[in-house]
């Protein structure tokens, strides 16, 4: 089991007695908005710490990992991702630098762009992209780093339905093939039914259902 939560409380947003996440290749978190899904991802990504309770990653308490070591393994994609460079190429370069990884080429970037169905050039200004394009560039720069755990906050929220289906299929495929496991928040659980092996419903900060 990758993540285990025990009596985790965060403000009045989240209160989870017991939850195990991420054993399957792809886990989908769903539930009404404002229910605490994003907060749960942020806790797992060590962006915030719980007020009470313990979170384990691979059997070790989260706080016993040096922060950078943990973020090397577990990386997250925000729902409204920010661009960190000027061009699409520099988005990839920044990500590689932040992760202290190198040896990538334009070809690697271009491959990821193609996989994301992004018809853009690497020199294109990343701030000029639409919301959906930014989301895909941000997902691509995250995938470049191949972390062992990817936490995705509604990665298809700004996409049209065709692109959304395509990307979800792709993620499901990727999770089965590559070493990366995925925990993702989704606004449409019916779309993730086929690809997710574990589905968790979070409502009012609590686990309301699991299958």
């Amino acid at each position: 089991m990758l993540f285990e939560l025990e009596n985790v409380v965060y403000k009045d947003i989240l209160n989870i007695e017991s939850l195990q996440l991420g054993e399957s290749d792809l886990t989908a978190l769903s539930g009404p908005s404002g229910g605490g899904k994003t907060t749960l991802l942020r806790l797992l990504a060590n962006l915030i710490s719980p007020d009470e309770g313990v979170i384990y990653y691979k059997g070790k308490k989260l706080e016993s990992y040096p922060p950078l070591e943990l973020r090397e393994k577990v990386k997250m994609l925000a729902q409204n991702p920010r661009m960190l460079g000027d061009t699409i190429r520099s988005e990839f370069e920044q990500a590689a630098e932040f992760a202290r990884q190198d040896g990538y080429s334009d070809q690697d970037y271009q491959e990821l762009m193609d996989l994301m169905n992004l018809d853009k050039k690497l020199e294109d200004d990343s701030e000029e992209l639409s919301g959906g394009e930014k989301q895909r560039v941000a997902l691509a720069r995250l995938m470049l780093l191949e972390p062992e755990m990817m936490l995705l906050d509604e990665p298809t929220a700004s996409l049209d339905i065709d692109n959304e289906k395509y990307l979800l299929d792709f993620l499901g495929h990727r999770a089965r093939q590559a070493g990366s496991k995925i925990i993702m928040v989704t606004h449409a659980p019916e779309l993730t039914e086929d690809i997710a092996q574990q589905q968790v419903i979070i409502e009012d900060g609590r686990v309301k259902g699991e299958e």
Partner: peptide, 17 residues
């Protein structure tokens, strides 16, 4: 825009980066 800083942290950046 604190979210921008956090986006970098999510990718593995140190606070300085």
């Amino acid at each position: 825009d604190p979210a921008r800083i956090e986006n970098a942290l999510m990718l593995g950046a140190s606070p300085t980066q």
